[in-house]
């Protein structure tokens, strides 16, 4: 119990002291996970919407696959992306391994299925409600998918947030493809893992407290936005 109190105090100290290295680590974590979330949304949301609205052979199989991929182990994703980006791998010539870009790629692979699967669920519900009206107005299925993506934008925010939450809390994949290089690819989770390795448990926990606080703050802001939007748009 004393350790947890110590960690809370330490976390407060670190934040109030405005440690620039800590700030850089937090900023990198946010930038990497935010970029990955954005790319995942650009890929996963249209895909999820087409899975919800579309009628094509293999649709059910894809739905099951994406639901299954939601549980991808980060380490496996990390390893896969590592093998792709490694100099000996197919994309080795770009020299992306151990860069923030590599981390964005790994997190994107990790969370795109989550965003796609959650989007599919949301759009399927929307499709049930709007299907007849949209078809009556003459919307094609792709057009309907686009319309419903826009229409469900506030619910989809939650899908994006779920992806972001998984990305920023993940350590296995970014550790492997980022290499946890000080000042280059060290993010909050890999720092926590490193400090745990050094046996500095209070510091590791303090960093964890900061991570949780950041994630909570983002969720709270998103929740408030969604409440406001629902009140406004119904």
């Amino acid at each position: 119990m004393a350790e947890i109190t110590n960690s809370l105090l330490l976390a407060t100290d670190m934040v109030t002291a405005g440690d620039s290295r800590l700030a850089a680590i937090v900023a990198l974590s946010l930038a990497v996970s935010f970029s990955a979330t954005l790319i995942s949304c650009l890929l996963g949301m249209p895909l999820g919407a087409l899975l919800a609205v579309g009628r094509f052979p293999g649709r059910r199989v894809l739905v099951v696959i994406f639901n299954g991929l939601m549980g991808l182990p980060p380490v496996v994703v990390g390893l896969l992306v590592y093998l792709l980006l490694s100099r000996a791998g197919p994309l080795g010539q770009f020299g992306l391994l151990f860069t923030p870009t590599a981390m964005v790629i790994a997190q994107t692979v990790l969370i795109t299925p989550i965003v796609a699967a959650l989007t599919r669920q949301v759009i399927e519900d929307e499709w049930r409600e709007y299907r007849e009206q949209l078809r009556s107005l003459g919307a094609s299925r792709t057009r309907a998918a686009r319309t419903l993506l826009w229409n469900a934008r506030f619910s989809l925010f939650t899908a994006a947030l779920a992806g972001f939450g998984r990305a920023i809390a993940e350590v296995g994949a970014v550790m492997i493809v980022g290499g946890n290089i000080d000042g280059v690819t060290r993010v909050m989770t890999t720092t926590i893992a490193l400090e745990t390795s050094k046996g500095d448990l209070p510091l590791a926990l303090a960093l964890g407290v900061i991570l949780i606080t950041v994630v909570l703050a983002i969720n709270a802001a998103a929740y408030a936005l969604r409440q406001w939007a629902e009140n406004r748009w119904g």
């Binding site: 709007y130 007849e132 009206q133 319309t147 229409n151 119904g234």
Partner: peptide, 9 residues
């Protein structure tokens, strides 16, 4: 339709 279906707009 019996129940109007409005977009969030």
């Amino acid at each position: 339709f019996q129940r109007p279906v409005m977009l969030r707009a």
